[in-house]
Design a binder for these strands. Structure first.
Length: 879
RNA sequence: GGAUGUGUAGCUCAGCUGGUUAGAGCGUUCGCUUCACACGCGAGAGGCCGGGGGUUCGAGUCCCUCCACAUCCA
């Protein structure tokens, strides 16, 4: 698929080359000509090693576009372009992650609606607003059916995707737009459900009724990976429990949970409580007898050192409940309110009336107020509550602390409970090359710190339904132990809308009939399958993968940001391990974040975000890419307009210098054979080194190093080499000497354009088109072999230094560079002088050394200097 | 509290396995209509390489320690 550079043809060079319009011009050409199209047939016929496959991060289309996208997608695109030029078939799909809460929230706000599973579908439904909903309060939202809600999600995400596509195309990302998926389309849903069913069949997915974190606002279960610990204001309440030998004081931030207290726990080494352990005390107000127990995770130095264990105040309570086999006394419901009816264990207690009248049905917050009041009245509150900041668990998108409630949910084994699986998943991390390598410790730390399996049930609307039904017994109760599963060939299914195999729709909810699992899968449960979705693992649903799958999987590259190593990266590893026993990809390239000038993460709430569209329009795509490509993998980068301006100048310089280098006349025949001048041979020798460094940079996933090497060469090429040879190239010293310069200019330019092409796709394509048929992006990556051997790299440096001293003399004399130098003596070590002499004619032309030029040997190691230098300024032309 | 990373010129960053006088770009200062480019060209100034200790003939680079910042996890 890679072409060699075609024979040069007559140049068609614009009079005044410009960046304006290049993006539209080449964007159209690339799309029309399928420049970045993946050649499926060739890939099927070829070897796996000839393919470079990329597990492109599917952006959340309903999220906002930000410079972080530009940054990390540019990194990937540079690598993709390099690999393509190296002759690999680049599999570079684009996906859209339309699952989940961000989309639901955006749809709610945009249309002013809210999903309500109890409502019937309205085929002619029109939303009350379209992007102009005035209120974001839940009470003002119109309740609509699940299916209507999903339709609106579909409608809006398609719109949102257009904004991303437009920007991504403008930035020149060499994605194959014909290979695309949405995480909610039929294929993705079927793939996700198929993988889940296979997890179920192998016992890797299971249901469990267990205490879990619950967000009362969003009414959904939350996984460990979605947790966020935040400071939350609270107060310690010193409360007396009634022991046989007097009161036992505990300090709690959640006195409203006293009704659900099941034990007091102290540390086994805490001598203050040795005597109490094994005895029992009675709870205040409710007079329930609870044991005093010992457990090492009680914190001696916190509060009173003895803690109340409830059902459930926090994750430690769950640990105690499990390890000490404590009873379950749950009062907090999924709504975050205390249950209305008096719990059975309080029924005969003196506090039953208190519960019924002042606690039942209240939110945790108001129940706390009421209970503290009651404690005051009974004298069980010691002193006044003391304010404190404590860490509380939040859902990362939620605003209220999570409650812990017992629910039936699906889980996927991820090593959080089994040591062996944990060790094997840690080992999978060592099979992946992380770039940079230290990012692997983020992975390892996370996996080793897991304390539970992956909860994948979500009580949401817009997502992939859990493909499971449950039979109903004669009493209409679901039999969770015998779930009904669909055939793989029937996927995707929606258990809320379809009947399971062997049932009819009118048996839904009827005793002896069935009920569908009401939940959807965690969004990561689908996006953890992006390699399988994009690569065609499910195939046409017949059980056989698309034959392409074997040619792209395991993929070569997963690019992503470091904040989702614990979620997206890890989840993908888990799924690939369960399904294929392999890693999902062999390389993970981790991009950093974009920081504002104050070194803070740019975010909408701080008001410091800039819109990528405007930035690209202002500076050009090549310029913005240059900025992004200057940031190395794993390193946070500053948002730096200055760096974009540098990129823009480089792009313009490429246009102008190329035009100039091609302006001396055509070249024909074997160019390398025409390079005879020592200076010309020298510049190509330097370029050979640059090719080696630029290649080594990309091979080490260090495109920045590659860019820097090429860029440095290019400026020397423009400032020194071009200046030195232009007189000769015009023909001042005969045709052979001119031909050597012209051939060198052409050879160097062709190589430099290809070295810059991954970073500056537009300007390099433009210049390439002046002298070539076909795209520079389909040309071969330059090799040392295409440049003549035998030049001395030191020659260019020596002559450059000599030219610099002449320029310095002119600059210090404040005369123009055109000033003539009738006499001068160059002082330098003998070795350097020899090199300078070899290019004396070019030096004389560039420095206007018109008369006597002498050489004096200087000390070894000394720099080039000039003495006895006379200057004749150019007479100002008469006006 | 633990893990990881960062700390080099006013700013953004190079400096790989220790080796001459620490580099680049931007900015700044001083110049220059030089026939590709004034979105240009040339030249200059600017650094106790976060602090302290150690290893070494030699440390920006290796080790220890402290400080500051960032991210992730408790």
């Amino acid at each position: 698929m890679t072409e060699h550079p075609p024979a040069p043809r007559a140049a068609a060079i614009p009079e005044r080359p410009s960046l304006e319009g290049l993006e539209e011009k080449w964007g159209t050409v690339w799309a029309q000509q399928g420049t970045y199209a993946f050649d499926r047939e060739a890939a099927l016929a070829g070897e796996r090693a000839e393919v470079f496959s990329i597990d492109t991060p599917p952006p959340t289309a309903s999220g906002s576009l930000h410079m972080g996208h530009v940054f990390s997608y540019t990194h990937t695109d540079c690598m993709a372009r390099y690999k393509r030029m190296r002759g690999l078939r680049v599999f570079y799909p684009i996906g859209w992650d339309d699952n989940g809460l961000p989309t639901e929230k955006r749809v709610q706000n945009y249309y002013g609606v809210r999903g309500d599973a109890s409502l019937p579908y309205d085929p002619g439904f029109e939303p009350p607003f379209r992007g102009n909903a005035k209120s974001t309060k839940a009470a003002d939202e119109m309740p609509i059916s699940r299916q209507n809600f999903i339709e609106l999600c579909d409608e809006l995400t398609v719109e949102d995707e257009k904004a991303f596509e437009s920007l991504f195309r403008r930035l020149g990302f060499s994605l194959d737009w014909d290979i695309s998926y949405r995480t909610v389309d039929d294929h993705s849903r079927a793939t996700s459900q198929q993988a889940f069913l296979r997890n179920v069949a192998r016992g890797e997915a299971y249901q469990s009724e267990a205490p879990g974190l619950w967000d009362v606002t969003f009414q959904t279960a939350v996984a460990q990976a979605e947790l966020e610990a935040r400071d939350y204001p609270g107060a310690y309440h010193r409360v007396a429990f009634h022991g046989t030998d007097g009161p036992v004081y505990i300090e709690t931030t959640r006195p409203e949970l006293i009704p659900s207290c099941v034990a007091l726990i102290a540390h086994p080494d805490d001598e203050r409580y040795h005597a109490l352990i094994g005895s029992s005390v009675r709870t205040p107000l409710f007079d329930v007898e609870v044991p005093v127990l010992a457990h090492p995770s009680a914190e001696m130095d916190k509060g009173a050192g003895i803690a109340m264990c409830c059902t459930f105040g926090d994750l430690t309570d769950v640990l105690w409940w499990r390890e000490l086999r404590l009873p379950t006394r749950s009062v907090v419901t999924r709504t975050g309110r205390l249950q209305s009816e008096v719990p059975p264990w309080l029924a005969s207690s003196p506090g039953a009336a208190l519960y019924a009248e002042r606690l039942g049905g209240k939110t945790a917050f108001s129940a706390r107020t009421a209970l503290v009041e009651a404690l005051r009245e009974s004298g069980d509150l010691d002193g006044e509550p003391t304010p404190t900041q404590r860490k509380a668990n939040f859902y990362e998108r939620g605003e209220k602390p999570l409650e812990i409630v017992t629910t039936r949910q699906w889980y996927i084994r991820n090593g959080g409970r089994e040591r062996e699986l944990n060790a094997r998943l840690v080992a999978q991390g060592r099979e992946i090359e992380f770039h940079p390598a230290f990012m692997r410790s983020r992975y390892t730390n996370w996996v080793e710190g897991l304390n539970g399996d992956w909860l994948v049930s979500r009580q949401r609307f817009f997502g992939v339904p859990i493909p499971v039904w449950y039979p109903l017994d004669a009493d209409g109760e679901p039999d969770h132990d015998h779930p009904i599963l669909p055939a793989e060939s029937d996927l995707p299914v929606d258990p809320a809308a379809q009947a399971p195999p062997g049932y009819t729709d009118d048996q839904r909810g009827v005793p002896g009939g069935f009920v569908g699992d009401p939940d959807v899968l965690d969004t990561w449960a689908t996006s953890s399958l992006t390699p399988q979705i994009a690569g065609g693992w499910r195939g046409a649903g017949s059980g056989e993968p698309d034959p392409l799958f074997a040619k792209v999987f395991p993929m070569d590259l997963r690019p992503q940001a470091h904040d989702i190593i614990r979620t997206w990266l890890f989840a993908t590893v888990v799924r690939a391990f369960h399904e294929h026993g392999t890693v999902p990809w062999t390389n993970a390239a981790i991009s950093g974040w974009i920081l504002d000038p104050d070194r803070k993460k740019m975010s909408k709430s701080k008001g410091n975000v800039v819109t990528p569209e405007d930035v690209v329009r202002e500076h050009s795509a090549d310029a913005v890419r240059y900025w992004a490509a200057s940031g190395r993998l794993g390193t946070d980068a500053a948002y730096d307009v200055g760096q974009m301006k540098v990129g823009r100048r480089l792009a313009i310089k490429v246009l102008n210098a190329s035009k100039f280098a091609l302006s001396f006349g055509d070249v024909e025949g074997d160019l390398a054979a025409q390079v005879t001048d020592p200076l010309d041979r020298s510049v190509l020798a330097v370029l050979r080194e640059v090719v080696e460094r630029a290649t080594a940079g990309f091979e080490a996933w260090d495109y920045t190093r590659s860019l820097e090497a090429t860029e440095t060469f290019f400026w020397t090429f423009c400032d020194d080499y071009l200046e030195l040879v232009k007189d000769r190239a015009y023909g001042s010293r005969g045709e052979a000497a001119a031909a050597s310069a012209r051939a060198t200019l052409r050879l160097a330019l062709d190589v430099v354009l290809r070295l810059l092409a991954p970073v500056l796709p537009y300007v390099t394509e433009e210049v390439w088109s002046w002298t070539h048929e076909g795209s520079v992006h389909r040309a071969s990556w330059p090799s040392v072999q295409e440049l003549p051997d035998g030049g001395d790299p030191a020659l260019l440096e020596a002559v450059g230094a000599a030219l610099a001293v002449v320029r310095k003399a002119k600059s210090e004399a404040k005369v123009g560079m055109r000033a003539e130098v009738p006499t001068a003596t160059l002082v330098a070590p003998a070795r350097v002088l020899d090199l300078v002499r070899a290019a004396e004619a070019d030096l004389r032309a560039a420095g206007r050394l018109t008369g006597r030029l002498e050489y004096a040997e200087g000390a070894d190691g000394a720099e080039v200097a000039a003495r006895d230098l006379e200057l004749v300024p150019v007479a100002k032309p008469a006006r």
